[in-house]
Simulated assay, not measured.
Amino acid sequence: MGEGNVALFAPAETLWVYDSQTAGTRLTNLQTIGGSPITEVTSDSNGQIPPFLTPPGVTALWISSADGASPALNPRVLLSASDLFTDIETLDAAIEDIEVSAGVTSVQGKTGTVTLAPSELTPPAATVTSVTSVSAIVGARLVQVGSGYPVRPSGATWVWFLGSADPGSAAQNGDLWFFPES
């Protein structure tokens, strides 16, 4: 164990990778960061484990000195995958594609000005008593509709305008305007 109880291996130590702390299967379908195939990892000149790639979906693995089949002689150390940036980008892309909308496309048996009760919608709409009022809006994203933007929510601390039209006087100090490339 190194400083702060960090697991260290001998410099230039051959390391084997497993899918469990004891027994399990040795993983040999690894890659260097550059994408070259490897079957084992070699510790650096300080005894630390260099970054390497695991098979897709492997998020935790165990690593030990070669001959880790004998955990009593060569205990295994747990490593966790660090795909945080990729995970954030994937989540961000998924959120960007979410659109919530509501409306009525046709109302049978009604003519003229149509007023619907919450129970007449499918699925039923929330009633006034089941909606919690918003006391403060931290931020809002307003997407350009036609040549302008929806009304700025009152009390919004900041607004992110997204569109090709300049928000002009609708923007306040601290707001952001993103002009997408065509």
Results as ranks from 00 to 15, higher is better:
residue 93 A to T: 15
residue 159 V to C: 11
residue 48 Q to V: 01
residue 172 Q to L: 09
residue 122 T to K: 11
residue 148 G to T: 03
residue 120 E to I: 12
residue 166 D to N: 11
residue 49 I to E: 09
residue 108 Q to V: 06
residue 179 F to Q: 02
residue 134 V to R: 02
residue 177 W to E: 09
residue 87 D to I: 08
residue 37 P to I: 09
residue 135 S to L: 05
residue 116 L to R: 02
residue 90 T to K: 09
residue 155 G to A: 13
residue 168 G to C: 10
residue 79 L to C: 10
residue 141 R to Q: 07
residue 64 S to N: 04
residue 32 T to Y: 01
residue 34 G to I: 10
residue 2 G to N: 08
residue 150 P to D: 01
residue 76 R to I: 08
residue 108 Q to N: 13
residue 159 V to R: 01
residue 59 T to Y: 10
residue 9 F to G: 00
residue 125 A to R: 04
residue 40 E to N: 15
residue 56 P to Y: 03
residue 154 S to R: 00
residue 14 T to G: 06
residue 78 L to T: 07
residue 59 T to R: 14
residue 62 W to D: 03
residue 57 G to D: 12
residue 116 L to V: 05
residue 149 Y to V: 04
residue 120 E to C: 04
residue 178 F to Y: 07
residue 5 N to Q: 11
residue 153 P to K: 04
residue 175 D to L: 05
residue 67 D to Y: 05
residue 88 I to G: 03
residue 8 L to I: 05
residue 38 I to Q: 11
residue 41 V to N: 02
residue 179 F to Y: 00
residue 59 T to W: 11
residue 151 V to H: 06
residue 103 G to M: 08
residue 50 P to G: 05
residue 41 V to K: 06
residue 121 L to G: 13
residue 89 E to D: 15
residue 57 G to C: 07
residue 54 T to L: 13
residue 156 A to Q: 11
residue 10 A to N: 11
residue 134 V to G: 14
residue 92 D to W: 10
residue 36 S to V: 14
residue 52 F to Q: 01
residue 142 L to W: 02
residue 29 N to K: 15
residue 37 P to S: 08
residue 161 F to C: 14
residue 88 I to C: 04
residue 37 P to D: 07
residue 177 W to D: 12
residue 56 P to T: 02
residue 56 P to E: 13
residue 36 S to L: 14
residue 23 A to Y: 00
residue 65 S to D: 02
residue 142 L to V: 05
residue 59 T to P: 14
residue 19 D to A: 04
residue 30 L to V: 11
residue 151 V to T: 08
residue 171 A to G: 02
residue 72 A to W: 09
residue 104 V to P: 12
residue 152 R to K: 10
residue 45 S to M: 03
residue 43 S to C: 05
residue 167 P to Q: 13
residue 124 P to G: 01
residue 159 V to D: 04
residue 23 A to V: 05
residue 111 T to M: 11
residue 111 T to D: 11
residue 106 S to Q: 03
residue 100 V to H: 05
residue 103 G to V: 11
residue 155 G to L: 00
residue 99 E to I: 05
residue 147 S to Y: 07
residue 67 D to K: 11
